[in-house]
Design a protein around this nucleic acid. Structure first.
Ligand SMILES: [Mn+2]
Ligand SMILES: [Mn+2]
Ligand SMILES: [Zn+2]
Ligand SMILES: [Zn+2]
Lengths: 144, 144
DNA sequence: ATAATATTGAGAATGATTCTCAATATTATT
DNA sequence: AATAATATTGAGAATCATTCTCAATATTAT
């Protein structure tokens, strides 16, 4: 049943249904935080070529089905955009490398939006997107 | 006279005074926005080896004399921390690749700080720093 | 089933950054 | 100022993530 959803998702976005694409989407659906290419491949019984993984991720990104961004270690991280996914930001733990979704309250997001409009006018630049990311160290002692 | 300042800056931070280090600091002093390794090297009559430039930048970063971060194209950008430099953020133009410093008003920065404290408590993570970056496209038609 | 088309996997290529180490420059000592 | 001890540099090799190429394979259309 989940497979049908995935098939439809692929078809309705102009993709043919292939095993690597279905596998990657499944993995992203089951991940509760952004995940790297290596981790994706590790969850596929090592069956997907790394080049294919990158290609598929790039295609999903073009179709606006995923968010992608670089980790502080300069690795690509991706997360599936689900129907309940909304604009949010991330907190990176620099010791254990976990990434947490963070929501910021509406008031702050509105303040940010109005700041953006102001800066856009001041500099005569159309601002297309923004990032707001937090970096920290959790108390997981296993990394010291 | 500026040279003496640079010599002192280097010495007081435990660096010996060498031509490549002096040159790079001069270049950073004269740059009004963050600058990449290639641009730095181009301004030195091509005399500094790329490996040396990276090494020197890494050392200056360790000594907290510069800020460094990655551009959207994943290139290292650096800016000198001068005595009037304070916490600020950046706006990247994705067509002409310019980087602009942006200041955000105190009220917003305070809101961000209190958000950070809240998230830090909620997740039991010490948050060490944050980034807030804007991405846009200016009206420079020469890049289309 | 066959043909036409699209996707995949393997490895080569690329580009930024880091590493290695012998040659050179700087600093400390006489 | 010369010499010795130490630190830095430059050149290129190595690394690592990502992209590219293209023949083999899978998917879709007929
Ligand atoms: Mn997220
Ligand atoms: Mn700046
Ligand atoms: Zn952690
Ligand atoms: Zn621009």
């Amino acid at each position: 049943m989940k497979n049908n959803n995935i098939n439809n998702l692929l078809k309705s976005n102009g993709f043919s249904v292939t095993k690597p694409r279905v596998q990657i989407i499944k993995i992203l659906q089951n991940s509760n935080s952004p995940i790297g290419i290596d981790a994706i491949i590790n969850k596929t019984d090592g069956k997907i070529a790394i080049s294919s993984a990158y290609r598929i991720i790039a295609d999903l990104l073009d179709a606006d089905l995923i968010n992608a961004f670089q980790s502080p270690e300069n690795k690509l991280l991706v997360e599936l955009i689900q129907n309940n996914t909304k604009h949010h930001h991330h907190l990176y733990c620099q010791s254990c490398k976990k990434v947490l979704d963070i929501d910021i309250d509406e008031k702050l997001e509105k303040n940010i939006d109005s700041l953006i409009r102001k800066i856009s006018k001041q500099n005569n630049i159309e601002i297309t997107n923004h990032s707001f990311e937090l970096f920290g160290k959790c108390n997981d002692k296993s990394h010291e």
